[in-house]
Design a protein around this nucleic acid. Structure first.
Length: 269
DNA sequence: CCTATAGCCTGACGGC
DNA sequence: TGCCGTCAGGCTATAG
């Protein structure tokens, strides 16, 4: 699940359940989930400290420790958080667990183990080290800046939106929705979009991501809360496009399955 | 430089 | 019901 809206909601969940409590235990039973660190070093870094705050950049969650240092989370395709009491059974697929004082615990769960957890000095240096582009909801991503980013891309527009080193946070699902709402063919060249199309893309990008956050992306029941007019509700081959009633089509674009409405998404195609 | 593909992992789902 | 193939909202390394 975890694209920008999902991770933003996980961040808020983390803030509610993990901030300002002494960390009394760290369980990291799955070494593969750790990236560039070890269970031992993680324990040494975190034990006895508290999380002071949590930032997000693109699909990454950056949990700041009091006194410096950051625990970084990437959720892969199936990562999530689950808080639970100490006397409850730990959730299935727990790959990392923090035990706080009292009865509160926070698990990072990830069935497929495609998620990654690591350590960094600070959020800014992590973003630089990872080579991440500007966060998709950063206000500094203006229409001219988006236009400039796309103009220097030689990729298709869907691949350009998903390139984390340019714009961080958008994945396969939300790129489909953004392009649908902007009326742009996912196979179009990124550099070939005119001013009006880039303007619509910018509007759609912000609206889609904000709305998804507000409606609870990442949590159970989100699918039922999707707006009626969204493509995501009808993201199956042959389903009826919510705008024109035509057939939704699937296509393989940059290694992922894209869904779109050929009639409503003509721009650049 | 770029795009395309396989691989990492496991679970869910549809067809037989 | 059980087995098998396919697919899944991530990224990375490697090949062309």
């Amino acid at each position: 699940m975890p694209e920008l809206p999902d991770v933003e909601n996980y961040r808020r969940y983390f803030v509610r359940h993990a901030l300002r409590r002494p960390i009394e235990g760290v369980h990291a039973p799955d070494a593969r989930t750790l990236r560039g660190t070890s269970a031992r070093r993680l324990r040494e870094t975190v034990l006895g400290r508290r999380f002071a705050g949590a930032d997000r950049h693109g699909k990454h969650l950056l949990a700041r420790l009091d006194g410096g240092g950051v625990v970084t989370f990437h959720f892969g395709m199936t990562g999530a958080f689950a808080a639970c009491a100490a006397d409850e059974a730990p959730p299935r697929f727990t790959r990392l667990r923090f035990d706080f004082d009292g009865r509160c615990r926070l698990s990072f769960t990830d069935p497929r183990r495609l998620g990654r957890i690591g350590l960094a000095d600070d959020p800014a240096s992590f973003v630089v080290d990872q080579g991440l582009g500007i966060d998709a909801l950063d206000r500094r991503l203006t229409v001219p800046r988006l236009a400039a980013l796309l103009a220097q891309s030689s990729a298709g527009i869907k691949a350009a939106l998903m390139a984390q080193d340019r714009i961080a946070g958008i994945g396969n699902i939300y790129s489909d929705e953004i392009l649908f709402q902007a009326g742009i063919d996912p196979r179009a060249d990124a550099a070939g979009l005119d001013r009006r199309a880039v303007g619509r893309l910018h509007r759609a990008l912000r609206r889609v991501l904000r709305t998804a956050i507000d409606r609870g992306a990442g949590w159970a029941g989100f699918a039922e809360k999707l707006p009626d007019g969204w493509l995501l509700r009808h993201r199956r081959s042959g389903a009826a496009c919510p705008r024109c009633g035509g057939a939704v089509r699937a296509a393989r674009i940059s290694g992922r399955t894209a869904y779109f409405c050929p009639r409503c998404q003509k721009d650049g195609g």
